[in-house]
């Protein structure tokens, strides 16, 4: 039973590797930026799956911790790249709202009169 499951997991890991290699085609030849971003996101998900399956194959539970780290970093990387290409910067300066600033000043003046 254990032998069969180990070989089955090895086959599953190989198929996930094949899927990752196919996803590289879209990553390298995607016509738009968003195609590439989608391919990177999907590649990261498959990396998590490969790590989880492969640490069952080699019977060492360390890989699941790394997979957890990848699951968190993959999402944050996707959102960060999207924000970068939306604003062309990661630190976006705030713009002063003139009407609200004037209202705020007026309220302060009224309070001072009381």
């Amino acid at each position: 039973m254990a032998h069969f499951l180990a070989y089955f997991n090895l086959g599953a890991a190989f198929l996930i590797i094949v899927s990752m290699a196919m996803m590289l085609g879209r990553l390298l030849g995607g016509p738009t930026l968003y195609d590439r971003l989608l391919a990177v996101n999907s590649f990261g998900t498959k990396t998590i799956l490969f790590l989880c399956v492969f640490c069952f194959v080699i019977d060492r539970p360390d890989g699941v911790d790394i997979a957890l780290l990848y699951a968190l970093m993959n999402f944050i990387a996707t959102i960060a790249v999207l924000k970068f290409f939306n604003y062309r910067a990661l630190g976006v300066p705030l713009i002063k709202d003139q009407t609200k600033a004037a209202q705020h000043k007026g309220g302060n003046v009224k309070g001072a009169h009381k």
């Binding site: 899927s19 196919m22 085609g25 879209r26 999907s42």
Partner: peptide, 9 residues
């Protein structure tokens, strides 16, 4: 997973 990859391609 394989069907999704084929769809992306």
């Amino acid at each position: 997973v394989l069907a999704g990859t084929l769809g992306v391609l």
